[in-house]
């Protein structure tokens, strides 16, 4: 029992950090954008306030955003670790984080709209497990708000309306279209995770996983790296700007990945993440003790 108590304690700390302390790579991207924005513009005013808010959340030890989001836990586990025990410990940590005010009462029953007071419900939190060879447990947590999730989109190519064929030019058209449709509603300047291929479900999952990449991590596939750079540049030309009030930046980053597909299907899936890109991670020893914090 003691073993799980330590694990629970560190999972609670992971949730606390994720909710209140924006990762350094995201904050730096915001800071660079703010420095580039024209003094006196809406964009500059908004980015200044965003940066003050990031600092205030850290100082107050309180949520960066009141929408503490869908809780997505990504576990990499060594052989011999029981996933059910990890899930139970995580659910306890989520309930505790909710009672301590690090998470909003943010989970509703889909049929009768009743809130779950602990944020533990059918399908909440979300778990992803992947077997790992090392003798450590890696946990990454992403908190994704509903406003940004509502702006995510999936396209099936070819798309006649967009004149988008089954190639990277078609992918580019879909991403730009999704941005124009989203305007500022996903809390721009956001970060896009994009998946080319997969099926409808794996496309969304892989697009979200792109958001686990650090802001400075570029694709190691040359064609995708070029596409990422180009889309980031072109998003600024759209002039949507912070909160959709015009100007630049429209995005902080674009991360593109690809999965295999069926001959009949060519999906392009875009996961929109708000500027408050809350993701943290920790590497734990099998006894639940912290080896290293990630990001």
């Amino acid at each position: 029992m003691k073993k799980w108590a330590l694990l629970e304690e560190n999972l609670l700390e992971l949730i606390r950090r994720t909710s209140t302390d924006l990762p350094a790579d995201v904050e730096s991207a915001l800071r660079r954008s703010c420095a580039r924005a024209k003094p006196g513009s809406h964009a500059r005013g908004i980015l200044d306030m965003i940066l003050s808010n990031v600092a205030a959340a850290r100082d107050n030890d309180a949520p960066i955003c009141q929408d503490t989001g869908t809780l997505l836990f990504y576990f990499t586990t060594p052989p011999g670790i029981d996933p059910l025990a990890l899930m139970a410990a995580t659910r306890k940590a989520v309930a505790q984080a909710t009672s301590e005010g690090y998470l909003r009462e943010n989970t509703l029953d889909a049929l009768n709209n009743a809130p779950y007071p602990t944020n533990v419900g059918n399908g909440a939190p979300v778990f992803h497990f992947e077997p790992g060879a090392r003798d450590t447990i890696r946990v990454r947590l992403m908190m994704k708000g509903g406003g940004s999730e509502n702006m995510s989109a999936q396209y099936s190519l070819p798309d006649d309306r967009l004149k988008a064929g089954r190639d990277l030019e078609g992918v580019r058209r879909c991403v730009l279209d999704a941005l124009v449709r989203a305007q500022g509603n996903g809390c721009a300047p956001g970060i896009l995770g994009v998946c080319i291929g997969g099926d409808r479900a794996t496309g969304y999952a892989h697009a979200k996983e792109q958001l686990l990449r650090r802001m400075d991590e570029r694709s190691d596939v040359i064609a995708l790296r070029r596409l990422e750079d180009r889309l980031l540049r072109e998003s600024d030309r759209l002039g949507i700007g912070p909160m959709g009030l015009g100007g630049a930046p429209t995005l902080l980053g674009v991360k593109v990945g690809a999965l295999s597909r069926l001959p009949a299907s060519y999906f392009v899936t875009i996961s929109y993440m708000c500027w408050a890109m809350r993701r943290r991670g920790v590497v734990l020893a099998p006894n639940g003790g912290v080896r290293k914090w990630l990001y």
């Binding site: 058209r173 730009l176 941005l179 124009v180 030309r237 759209l238 002039g239 949507i240 009030l245 015009g246």
Partner: peptide, 22 residues
């Protein structure tokens, strides 16, 4: 802002711009 962004989208995806694509 939305109107202006739709205009830019049309420019960016007109054949000349897309041809310059990757």
């Amino acid at each position: 802002v939305a109107r202006a962004s739709r205009r830019v989208y049309r420019d960016l995806t007109s054949s000349a711009e897309s041809g310059a694509a990757a």
